[in-house]
Design a protein around this nucleic acid. Structure first.
Length: 188
DNA sequence: CTATAGATAATCT
DNA sequence: GATTATCTATAGG
């Protein structure tokens, strides 16, 4: 089976399942990145999801094929990275909230100006800045040459909790993290 | 620890 | 036209 088909199948599962599974996998943009340690799932029937009110210009790629990036600007100044999940047209995605830096540390420090290592990728906006992700990457497939995504190898202890920064759907424990990681955006 | 400024696009009234 | 939004940095207690 071709590699990109495996990837497509991986992401076509339910977003909550994928979000949990993504913790421990690795993601790089032009060689810069590391291990994903924190994610959140967003579903179409979830009032906190951008897709809840249907398709729009902004969230169009969230309704695109799974295994693609959905990138948007929030609060006017921060960029967030999501991976589209579920079936094409459904409107599910996983927000990548934190990465443990592994490669390209020098470039991350450059882009983020003298931060602590722990603060390089500990938060959706920080991670996007450190990996140099912008709206130009919106809708790109994860098989794009500029990206590299490596499935988790072995087992990782996962913790779950409430998602951050939302006002509805707060009873769903759809935030997932690597247990004990010092690179989480916030403790669970 | 809490409070709040910061800049912009989508959504609401 | 006003408000909100999957947030971060920084100032103050």
């Amino acid at each position: 089976m071709p590699a990109d088909e495996t990837l497509s199948q991986y992401f076509s599962r339910n977003a909550v399942v994928v979000a949990r599974d993504l913790v421990g996998s690795q993601f790089y943009v032009n060689g810069v990145g590391g291990e994903i340690v924190e994610t959140e799932a967003y579903l179409p029937d979830d009032p906190a999801s951008h897709s809840f009110r249907g398709r729009s210009e902004r969230n169009a790629s969230m309704f695109g094929p799974p295994g693609h990036a959905y990138i948007y600007r929030i609060y006017g100044l921060h960029t967030c990275l999501n991976f589209v999940c579920g079936k094409e047209g459904e409107g599910s995605a996983v927000l990548i909230r934190a990465i443990e830096p592994r490669h390209g540390l020098a470039r991350m420090f450059d882009r983020r100006r003298g931060s602590d290592v722990r603060l390089l990728c500990s938060g959706p906006g920080r991670l996007a800045q450190a990996l140099n992700i912008d709206r130009g990457c919106d809708g790109k497939a994860l098989t794009d040459p500029s990206f590299r995504w490596l499935e988790k190898i072995g087992d990782v202890a996962i913790v779950a909790g409430r998602r951050i920064g939302i006002k509805s759907g707060i009873d769903n424990l759809w935030r997932f993290g690597k247990a004990g990681s010092p690179f989480l955006s916030r403790p669970f």
